[in-house]
Design a protein around this nucleic acid. Structure first.
Lengths: 183, 183
DNA sequence: GCATGCATGTAAGGAGTTACATGATTCA
DNA sequence: TGAATCATGTAACTCCTTACATGCATGC
């Protein structure tokens, strides 16, 4: 049985400890979401499939009067996770509307570029802030790799934000220069 | 009428000059693909929709005996493109299986991390190479922004490749250190 | 009594890929 | 003659998001 990438996100998160669907979603939003997101619409059906495949095991654990199912990796699930981890990563995709708009900015004579760069920069800085808030939480846990990846996110997004600023400055300098020559 | 992001990729590419569907695909593969991909399955249906909406105009231009339709932006299409360029970019998504595998590498006791980092590094370096080959082509054109974005891609992927190497070295140093202490 | 959070789920649909089908042309 | 390239298109599918429905519990 072939597993979707999101199935492995779930297996991976459960390797850090048993969780309910709700907790998985909350965890994803505070961790992997920056490089691999997941929504309820994926998580709950996937939990059922993984459970049917015997890779995870659900146990009813009501909290208060609320029904609640907590899932844990089975031995087979842990094996599948480790097998996946040993295979070379393949998917590496980006969808960056800011870069797209910058790419086509000649269509506005470059007039749209400054605002596009500023918005992209804000976006990256926002992510940096969110990750910085998460960093101490990751540092407090026994696992080493989530912290490593968190720092990658911080540094990488900071680099991107800096590039935006640098480039915006170069563009406005070039513009001022050409205006100076014309005047 | 709402347009999909891919529709704007097409409008943007046509702003650089009239093209057939086939040429659009080839162009995407040599330019925007690194931050926004598109396949035939999207391009041809989208060309039809854009044509019906009056944003582009198709003209039969057989090359040799092959049937061939070349599309060009209409005035309305150019307007829509510029309107889109003036709006703040929104979508910024990443799917990085390498980071995902690194994030969960504690499940193998860290044993999988070195190979994951090496593979991710190779992947980024491959992209750097492809973009470097494209750079002189972009530089030769009258438009400024495609070259800018190409250089972003080169620098950014180089940064990511360097991070992988740096991190792999740190990990192996830490491992050697802990072994030294244990021995 | 009401907003918020916990908790589980589904339906509909958007977006995009892969694989295939078709057929002409060019060049070795 | 056969491979590669040009050229257009579709069907099936995966993946994922959004929006909604439901209902209990907690705390103000």
């Amino acid at each position: 049985m072939e597993l979707s990438p999101t199935a492995y996100v779930i297996l991976g998160l459960l390797s850090l400890g048993p969780k309910s669907g709700y907790e998985i979603k909350a965890f994803v939003d505070k961790s992997t979401r920056f490089f691999w997101a997941a929504s309820y619409g994926q998580i709950y059906p996937e939990l059922r499939k993984l459970s049917e495949a015997g890779l995870i095991d659900g146990e009813a654990k009501p909290a208060g009067g609320r029904r609640r199912t907590v899932y844990a990796l089975t031995r087979e699930g842990r094996k599948r996770l480790r097998e996946w981890l040993a295979v070379e990563p393949d998917v590496l995709e980006m969808r960056d509307e800011g870069l797209l708009k910058l790419f086509f900015a000649d269509a506005t004579g470059g007039a749209s570029a400054a605002e596009t760069l500023a918005a992209k920069r804000r976006h990256h800085l926002e992510i940096v802030e969110q990750l910085r808030a998460l960093e101490p939480l990751a540092a407090a846990k026994p696992e080493r790799f989530p912290l490593l990846v968190c720092r990658y996110g911080i540094e990488c997004n900071q680099w991107m934000a800096d590039w935006c600023q640098r480039t915006a400055e170069e563009l406005s300098a070039a513009e001022a220069g050409s205006k100076g020559r014309t005047a």
